[in-house]
Structure formats: C-alpha cells, structure tokens
C-alpha cells in the first residue's frame, strides 16, 4: 500500500532523508520512530504529496505521489503534528467544510460526518466550537477530519504529542479501531511505549536514515537482545541461581540480580529453551512460586539499535 524506493530529501547541504525504502502492506499499522529532526515529518509530507523529494519514488495506494500529488490527496488522510482550527465553527461545521473542500457531495457528506464522529468517539461534541475543545479532543477531531473523505491510508504525525495519559490510551484504542476498519496507518512518534502496543511493524529512523524496519519479534531477534526472566522461588534463591548457572553456563545465562526470593536472569535463548529453564528447576525439586519473561520494551530496542548504528558509523569513519 505504501512503497518508497531510495527516497531522499535534502535542503541544500542538509540531508533530511537518506535513501528511504519502505514497503507497508494494506491494513497495517506502521510505527515510525525517531528523535526530533530524524526525518519523520519529512517522510510523511512527501508521502502526502506536500513536499517533493530530491530523488527516489513514492507510491501510496498505487498512486505515484511525486508525479500525481493531486491524485494522492484522494487516497491519503493527513494529520500534521500541529494544526489549527477555525474560530467560531462547530465540530460538525469544521468537518463539513473539509468534506466540501474534498468535493464530497452533500448527501454523502452528511452521513460521513456522523460516521467519523462515531469512529473517533466525538459524537457528543458535534455542536461544540472546535476552538473550545481540549487538545486531546482536538486531536480526535483532527483524525475525524483526516478520515472525512474515507482515505485508504492515514498519516498521523505525532498524534499523542501533548496528551495526558488517559488521552494517549484512548488514542491507542482509536488506532486499533482504525486498523479494524481496514485503514493502513503510518503513525510517527518519539514516545516509544505507545507504539509498541499497537503497531504491527516499526521503522526506526535516526539522523535521516532508516536503521530498522520489521515486526517487533523479528526486531528483538535481530538486535540479539537477551531475554529477561524473573523467577520467585520458595526458598534458597542462591542455591537455585547456582544450579541454573551450572546447567546453563555464561554467557547463555547470567544471574543479574537476586532480591529476596526473586531471581532476575539474562538469558540468550529461544522460547523452547525458556520453557526448558522452568522444567529444569522443577526437576531439581526447586519450588517455583512464579516464573515470567519481562517483555522487552521498545525503548531498549531503540537505544540498542541506535547505539549499534553510531558505533558502526564511528568504526567506518575511523577506517576512512
């Protein structure tokens, strides 16, 4: 649904986007992660047809956005990170205006306004003035506006920026709902934990380059992150730790911490081997109160990947 090939954008000597190649499938929620200035907004603006790339190609829903930006507007819904609202307009009037600006017939528009208000959970705010809404509600109305012409693809640039925790949770739920509706969504953020729970795949952008693009599990394997295991034993945690260390010598297994009856382990192994750890403990007659793998969060992945990238860059700079 979204395909870019060697997409590059430079402003004079400043390289904003470097050789980006993406392939996002239909119905996917793609998390686009990177620090401020990495090139996320530049990518989104190119894909929305608002910015011309320096080189490369970009297609959205089989439309070449570089050659046919007007056509791209029919299939793309775009919500920028900062957008304005009109004073003195009610929510439904605001949506009606943009629907009319997309040349939607009036009869279709009327029903569609009700629909997008319902999708975004803003039915009750229909008659409220848009400029009187809180930021979280304005973000929802912004998504409703991006949906008004029923695009196949949505580009949401930092949709949770400035929102309180509850609003962020609601935004994540909305993203999942959009996926259920069959929309392809590219959502950018620099707040990593939010994307981890909703995205099918993530792409990590650092200093205008795409470092990684894959599913979460594959990303985990790719970065060779060790898995963290927590075990609470009935008694003798030290003995349990020693037994584990003897059976699975370092670097396979490393006991990183012992707190009371709880052991924290760093383990490099697949799912079957993790199950084998528990089986071993039971075989040894060690009573286990609970056993769990601590989910690796996106922040760790991000830090690991970007650190590796920087180290790699330093090595290549030194070699030159």
């Amino acid at each position: 649904m979204i395909v870019t090939e060697a997409l590059t954008k430079s402003y004079g000597d400043v390289l904003a986007l470097d050789d980006l190649s993406l392939d996002i499938g239909e119905g996917e929620i793609f998390g686009y992660i990177g620090p401020t200035g990495a090139g996320k907004s530049t990518t989104i603006r190119i894909l929305s047809g608002l910015l011309r790339p320096t080189s490369g190609s970009a297609r959205v829903a089989d439309v070449d956005v570089v050659r046919h930006p007007q056509e791209a507007k029919r299939v793309v819904g775009y919500m920028p990170d900062i957008f304005g609202v009109y004073h003195g307009m009610r929510v439904w009037e605001y949506l009606d205006f943009f629907g009319a600006a997309y040349r939607m017939p009036r009869a279709v528009r009327r029903a569609r306004i009700d629909e997008v208000l319902h999708i975004t959970g803003t039915d009750e705010m229909r008659d409220y003035f848009v400029d009187s809404l809180s930021r979280g509600m304005q973000q929802r109305v912004g998504i409703a506006r991006a949906l008004i012409h029923d695009p196949k693809v949505l580009f949401l640039d930092e949709p949770t920026s400035g929102l309180d925790p509850r609003a962020r949770i609601e935004m994540r739920q909305l993203l999942k709902h959009l996926k259920e509706l069959g929309k392809t969504v590219l959502v950018s953020s620099h707040i990593l934990p939010e994307l981890a729970s909703v995205c099918d795949r993530i792409g990590i952008l650092e200093q205008s380059r795409l470092l990684l693009c894959d599913r979460m599990e594959a990303v985990l394997r790719q970065v060779e992150l060790r898995r963290l295991i927590e075990i609470e034993v009935l008694d003798d945690p030290a003995g349990a730790g020693a037994a584990l260390a003897a059976q699975f010598p370092a670097p396979k297994l490393v006991v990183t911490e012992t707190v009371g009856r709880m052991l924290r382990l760093s383990f490099a192994g697949e799912d079957a081997e993790i199950a084998g750890l528990l089986a071993f403990l039971i075989q040894q007659g060690i009573g286990v109160l609970w056993y769990r793998e601590v989910p690796m969060d996106l922040e760790h992945i991000y830090m690991k990947i970007t650190t590796q990238a920087k180290a790699g860059k330093r090595r290549s700079d030194d070699a030159e």
Partner: peptide, 9 residues
C-alpha cells in the same frame, strides 16, 4: 490551516 487546505481539492 494552510497545510490542511493543501491536502484538499
């Protein structure tokens, strides 16, 4: 709002 209008027709 100009950015949003640029996206419209």
């Amino acid at each position: 709002n100009l950015e949003l209008l640029r996206m419209s027709r």
